[in-house]
Design a binder for these strands. Structure first.
Length: 258
DNA sequence: CAGAAGCCCTGAAGGC
DNA sequence: TGCCTTCAGGGCTTCT
C-alpha cells in the first residue's frame, strides 16, 4: 500500500508526465469514493505547472488533491477502455489521459482544502524531524511507539510497513510505551533511512513498471520483518512475531527488539 | 485530551 | 468446486 516513498515516486513520475500539459476534460465516473468527488471542471484548461507532495497527498497546481488511500493507482498513457474501479479520467492536452483507479475507494480526489493539511506533522525527511523534536513529542505519550510513529500529527508518511521496518532496525519493541523510548536519534535516523531507501529503489522499480503497464502506485520492496511472521529473523533466526496494535498488524523479532 | 475502537470498501486467501 | 468468513489498512469519526 502506498506510503510516503510510493507517493513520492508517483509524484515524481507525474511531474514528468503532467507539467506543461493541460487537463482538457475531466470525467468523473462515480459520485463518491472516500468523499464526494466535487465538480472538477474548474481545473480544465489551465497549464499544469506544479505537482507536489505533502504527507501522502499529491497536490496539482495547488488546487487538485489526490490521495491513493491503500489501493489507489494512477495510470497515464494513451486512452484505453475503462476498467473496473476507474473513478476519474483526466484527459490531457497531449492526447493522453490520467486515470485514477481505486478498488477499495479509500482514496481521495478532490479540490484543495486546508482541512487536510492543518494538523499534519513535519515531513520525516526534513531537518525539522530530529531527535530533539521526537524526544519532546514522545515525552508524555504512553501509547505504543509503533502506534505513535504512525500518527500523522507526530510525523507524516510513515505507514504500517515502514513503522515496523524502522523499529526493527532500531531494535525497539513495537509495544514499548512511546515515553520509554530512549535512543531518539537512532529511531529518527532509521525512519529516514528506510524511507530514503524505499524512494531510491522505488524510482528504478517504478520506471520499469510504468513502461510496461502505465500504472503508478504499487511496487514491491524487500522487507526485513513486515509480512514475515513465522519466518526466521535475518539477524538472529528467531521466529518473527505478529501482533495487532490499534487495529494494525505489527511484525517484530522478539529477540532483537526488546 | 489521550487512546482505543469502529467505519468505509473490495478482493484475496483460507476454511469447510 | 464453491460458498462463506476473515483479513488487509489510511484516515476520519465516535466513544470512553
Amino acid at each position: 500500500m502506498p506510503e510516503l516513498p510510493e507517493v513520492e515516486t508517483v509524484c515524481r513520475e507525474l511531474q514528468k508526465s503532467l507539467i506543461g500539459n493541460k487537463f482538457t476534460q475531466i470525467i468523473t465516473l462515480r459520485d463518491k469514493i472516500r468523499e464526494v468527488i466535487p465538480d472538477l471542471s474548474g481545473l480544465e484548461g489551465a497549464k499544469i505547472t506544479a505537482v507536489e507532495r505533502r504527507a501522502k497527498y499529491i497536490i496539482i497546481n495547488g488546487k487538485l488533491i489526490i490521495h491513493l488511500g491503500m489501493s489507489g493507482t494512477i495510470a497515464i498513457g494513451a486512452p484505453k477502455e475503462r476498467k473496473k474501479h476507474d473513478h476519474v479520467v483526466f484527459e490531457l492536452s497531449n492526447g493522453e489521459e490520467m486515470v485514477f483507479n481505486d478498488p477499495r475507494r479509500f482514496g481521495l480526489v478532490t479540490l484543495y482544502n486546508d482541512k487536510y493539511f492543518a494538523a499534519l506533522a513535519p515531513e520525516p525527511l526534513t531537518p525539522e524531524f530530529n531527535a530533539k523534536y521526537l524526544a519532546k513529542t514522545l515525552k508524555n505519550r504512553k501509547t505504543p511507539i509503533k502506534t505513535a510513529i504512525m500518527d500523522q500529527t507526530l510525523v507524516v508518511g510513515v505507514g504500517n510497513i515502514y513503522a515496523s521496518e524502522a523499529l526493527f532496525r532500531s531494535r525497539i519493541n513495537p509495544t514499548t510505551p512511546a515515553n520509554k523510548v530512549k535512543n531518539h536519534a537512532l529511531l529518527i535516523n532509521n525512519i529516514k533511512q528506510v524511507l530514503e531507501e524505499a524512494i531510491e529503489s522505488g524510482g528504478s522499480t517504478l520506471r520499469d513498471y510504468v513502461r510496461s503497464s502505465g500504472n503508478l502506485g504499487y511496487f514491491q520492496h524487500h522487507h526485513n520483518v513486515y509480512g514475515r511472521e513465522g519466518k526466521p529473523c535475518i539477524v538472529c533466526k528467531t521466529t518473527i512475531a505478529k501482533i495487532t496494535q490499534a487495529g494494525r498488524s505489527s511484525f517484530y523479532c522478539p529477540t532483537c527488539q526488546r
